[in-house]
Design a protein around this nucleic acid. Sequence first.
DNA 1: TAAATAGTGTCTTTGAGACACTATTTC
DNA 2: GAAATAGTGTCTCAAAGACACTATTTA
Lengths: 271, 271
Amino acid sequence: MTRDEAGFLASYDPRAYDPVAVTVDVVALTIRDGALSVLLVRRAHPPFADAWALPGGFVVAGGADGGGEDLPDAAVRELAEETGLAAADAALDRLHLEQLGTYGAPGRDPRMRVVSVAYLAFAPALPDPAAGGDAADAAWTPVAALGLTAAGAQPPGTTRPLAFDHARILADGLERARAKLEYTPLATAFCAAEFTIPELRAVYEAVWGEELHAGNFHRKVLSVPGFVEGTGGTSDAPGRRGGPRPRLYRAGDARLLHPALLRPSREEEVR
Amino acid sequence: MTRDEAGFLASYDPRAYDPVAVTVDVVALTIRDGALSVLLVRRAHPPFADAWALPGGFVVAGGADGGGEDLPDAAVRELAEETGLAAADAALDRLHLEQLGTYGAPGRDPRMRVVSVAYLAFAPALPDPAAGGDAADAAWTPVAALGLTAAGAQPPGTTRPLAFDHARILADGLERARAKLEYTPLATAFCAAEFTIPELRAVYEAVWGEELHAGNFHRKVLSVPGFVEGTGGTSDAPGRRGGPRPRLYRAGDARLLHPALLRPSREEEVR
DNA sequence: TAAATAGTGTCTTTGAGACACTATTTC
DNA sequence: GAAATAGTGTCTCAAAGACACTATTTA
């Protein structure tokens, strides 16, 4: 650093600017009882007290000398804090986390200018959360129960309206999830370490909201290089309604599916 | 708003938190002389004075009572300010702008904690920029000249090292652009309002960095519903090296290409 | 035994890519 | 005329989806 740069740094006063708060919000998805579900918390404090919202909160900034937390770390911390899931929990180990987008329209938070970085998480079936932090309650909620429109709005009279612009964020997260299942092997992130092809198909059906042809799906999954690899084992199939024991598979080493596994209902094809 | 909420808002002091600055940075791409190029500015002030960087700057926050600017507006403003392109310019009208991602690792800016929301812009050929704002210079730069690796790093000794983590942001923007050409009609955003199929092919070749089969490309583009629509006109083809006059097309009404136009070289297929 | 399910075989249709060819233009 | 290019025809191969079928399990 030159002397000029050092001098500039010393005279720099960040508080001369209007303040902006940075938060993270997490769209955590899982499959519970065959239904795609999102983790929601009930807000204990205003604004939107008692309303349901995505788990999230302020990022620890740290001073000019460092000490702040990185954004993905903040997302995992908020997820753990507000749900009682220990950050060291084995379940959180298998978590897939990716950045979804940033929402910063003026007025989206009545307190002040807040820019929120949203993260999208895929998790295998997790235990019921325990409320913690600023949350009065926490629960996995089937997304179908929220009455979300594709445009990211909830019609008036919805039983569980979301705080802030969280309906918009959730709608974006759902669309991202649906798209990612097409060309990445991330459906395996919703499964346990070992899974069967029918279980994997159930994930696709829950996320896409439509039934898939069992036979063609099976052949397709096995034909995509690196999607899954067999373990040699067989499921012990508790509580099924008949049929042979399906074989067990692990996630393969592919990071992209090629050829992709495209959604059937593409009549819309947004024009 | 309940009285409780109003009381909470009145007592809320945003300055109790460590400050975080929010900036926007723009990866503006265009095709110049057949080469995919990015708009860079030379920084007039520390940190990284005299280094090249993506155009960008602080977001106008506004107070609790509003008055701040939305993030996409800030991106367009920075683009206009630092390049001398008038915001009302017809060229900026045809601009495609989308959010790329948010970069907020502690220490990425030596002054303080800075969270930067990056935007990706596709533009038709634009005039040479004129430096303005905090920029000492501004220029369209062929991305090949920057020696970027796929990992988003620049090898030591690069002629034009980028400030901050802008090499990473640019690499992410390029990969996003390459992917988007596959399944959206955004290649047309690099073209004038009317264009020929060979011009469109040149866009794909510049962004993907490989040659495409002219005949198959032509048939493919016309076979995807809503990609392009004919104008009935014919190019007057100045300065070509022979061959018939190509027909003119406009962008169609499709927002997704189906079937997609996949990149040929997918041997890698990241495992 | 009946019903449900795992997994495979096969046929049809669509689309991608290779190659060939004609027509049109510039040098 | 030679070379380059726009645009079309045609063939082959890969892949998606429909349908059928067998084997295996539960109720």
